[in-house]
């Protein structure tokens, strides 16, 4: 479901979102504020997600548990 292609798809989604928010931002004197805030937050959130995703993409260590009880799911 989620593999390396997710990063590309996520990037495309963000780019589309940026395009939409650039043109769909409400007109008026606050247009710049809308545009920059939407685009910047989209990128910040994408970065955060992508970093987290990549950190788990090819994990070098796996979870270890000492006090797990049998039958736990």
């Amino acid at each position: 479901m989620a593999n390396g292609w997710s990063l590309i798809i996520g990037l495309i989604v963000v780019v589309i979102f940026c395009g939409v928010s650039w043109f769909a931002s409400p007109k008026g004197e606050n247009q710049t504020v809308w545009r920059s805030s939407l685009i910047l937050s989209a990128w910040a959130m994408f970065l955060m997600w992508a970093i987290t995703f990549m950190a788990q993409w090819h994990p070098l260590i796996s979870p270890i548990h000492n006090s797990l009880r049998p039958g736990y799911d």
């Binding site: 593999n3 997710s6 995703f53 994990p59 796996s62 979870p63 270890i64 000492n66």
Partner: peptide, 16 residues
């Protein structure tokens, strides 16, 4: 009380 090691469910699947 055993130390248990988790394994990957599916090598192609990363937590989304």
């Amino acid at each position: 009380g055993d130390t248990v090691y988790a394994t990957r469910a599916d090598p192609g699947y990363t937590y989304p």
